[in-house]
Design a protein around this nucleic acid. Structure first.
Ligand SMILES: [Mn+2]
Ligand SMILES: [Mn+2]
Ligand SMILES: [Zn+2]
Ligand SMILES: [Zn+2]
Lengths: 151, 151
DNA sequence: ATCATTCTGCAACCGGATTGCAAACTCAAG
DNA sequence: CTTGAGTTTGCAATCCGGTTGCAGAATGAT
């Protein structure tokens, strides 16, 4: 179990070597499969399920997708979103070129199309918690209807 | 599917008749099993899982616990918390004697003892969401270490 | 008492998550 | 280039919480 390391990547223009480097930076040995899965995660603007990944990547067995995602989590490369009926969804930790920062952001779950969107612009203010509770991380999920489904 | 109705109950001093009334007020027929399950929910200060309930109440089959909880949800008596690895947890909507109010509150998930606590005192401020997203309801879950497990 | 409706326990089912295991692969040492 | 230890992978089996089908029990109105 790694502590999350902050590098400054420009996620928009990553070639294969950059991806290998990204894995190495997190202490993960680069393999063909892991690069494929990493690319798929990187290409998705929204959190995705293991199911999504196994469907999209027909060449890799679901057990390997599962173990790869576990590895990525252990090494602080991805984290999970619990999205109600959608089950657990995965997304990359992204620190964009504006420099390292935690990219905690709320997520929006559309009850119609079941997609989960990242609300990157919405900042959650610090809350004051009761004494004695040590906070590690928070997650905020809102349910509703997305713009596409409303129209 | 009911709209949630707000009554003013004093949850601290409810006898059997009060519980039957609570069910009736939500359009749920009172049965022996339902009263047992309702009591168990009421006695818990924290959200609990279906597993917790079936373990605690050995006289009722898990299928009935499941269907009862579904009924309670449909009628706006309980709601669910998605708590990471703990799965879905149930808690009563509580409007205490201070009068009707929504009792939306954040929840704290202890990664050590796996309990989920209600952070009743912590109010989540209104966030401003992007255009086009219609918000129905939000849930806030923080992970960390609880006072007991820290000691 | 009768009958329609609802509730209940039991057992079976389900689907996603997880694991066991042997083959394939990697890579450093000889 | 071989060898062998350690790692990764696919496949099949398993697990397990949630869910459902169904027949008998309970309910409640006529
Ligand atoms: Mn996100
Ligand atoms: Mn609560
Ligand atoms: Zn939608
Ligand atoms: Zn704890």
């Amino acid at each position: 179990m790694h502590l999350r390391i902050e590098f400054s990547y420009n996620f928009a223009i990553m070639n294969n070597n950059d991806l290998e480097q990204l894995l190495q930076d997190h202490g993960i040995k680069a393999t063909a499969n892991r690069l494929i899965i990493l690319k798929a995660l990187m290409n998705s603007s929204r959190p995705i399920t293991m199911q999504d990944l196994t469907d999209e990547i027909e060449s890799i067995d679901k057990s390997n997708v599962f173990r790869t995602l576990s590895t990525f989590r252990e090494h602080g490369l991805v984290h999970v979103i619990e999205a109600c009926d959608e089950g657990v969804m995965y997304e990359l930790y992204r620190s964009d070129s504006n420099g390292p920062h935690n990219d905690i952001h709320p997520h929006f779950h559309c009850v119609v199309c079941h997609k989960v969107f990242c609300l990157k612009g919405v900042t959650v203010p610090k809350l004051n918690y009761p004494e004695g509770f040590d906070i590690l991380e928070g997650s905020f999920l809102v349910n509703g209807i997305c713009p596409e489904c409303k129209a």
